[in-house]
Amino acid sequence: MAARIMIAFAARRCLSALPTLLIVITLAFFMMRLAPGGPFDQERALPPEIERNVLAAYNLDQPLWRQYLDYLADLTRGDFGPSFKYRDFTVAELIANGFPASLQIGGLAMLCAIVFGVGLGTVAALHQNSPLDYTVMTFAMTGIAVPNFVMAPLLTLLFGVYLSLLPVAGWGDGAWANKLLPVIALALPQVAYIARLTRGSMIEVLNSNYIRTARAKGLREGLVVTRHAVKGALLPVVSYLGPATAAVATGSVVIETIFDIPGTGRYFVEGALNRDYPLVMGVVVFYAAMIIALNLAVDLLYGLMDPKLRRP
């Protein structure tokens, strides 16, 4: 019974995701075209007759609404189109090519965010209003306030240039040293956010009746926290994982560019600068779909964790 409800819920969410995706695609498509300059404007201007050939080859000579409908039709067939800039690759190939690096950076950043965020938040909650608590929360406020495009250059300046401990940029075929700084820069705001969330809900949970019962039973404080309190306190964190993934995904666009990582996010920036419309659209659709899917996963996870939602 519960499983059927779950499946129905998932199916409903999938269906409701379609209009969202369509809105994202439509907005991205037309906003991209609003930007002045076209994919074939460059230092060496094309003679008009050549430009005509090129535009015709990519259907860019068609009216905009026609291009839009064509794009949607291609998408339903799973065809992201060719890249204007990298003519030997399709957009799908480029995304597939960049995704492993993006996934590693993004996945590690999420992992760090959860482990350190929950850890620091719990510690702060257990030592409420102590110097330790204030230190953690100051750190968290800084992490939230400083955007990652400021944090990343500061980190490279400190660890890469002044201390010469880590590479300034580059992927180095995925070496650990190369991943460290981008992951930290990407994870930091999320660590901070999750730490604040965890602290808040932990304090609330620690004052709740069932924790008082657990303590009254004579359980050791350590067990009370790890077995009972954390589970309850994590619910808001889990519901934040959806927005966090979105933040990490969009943050990776900046971070990959700063650290010169050959990921999908960097193709987005390059695509936007080159007016490579299909490439930008491809990355947007891919990320949008991914974020929607992950949000759905979080919702399902929430259902599993929160007993209140499981009751029919």
């Binding site: 300059g37 076209g38 404007d41 201007a45 600068l273 080159n274």
Partner: peptide, 11 residues
């Protein structure tokens, strides 16, 4: 302006 916009204007 960025390069694309610049050359568009020149053209």
């Amino acid at each position: 302006t960025e390069v694309k916009v610049h050359y568009d204007k020149l053209k």
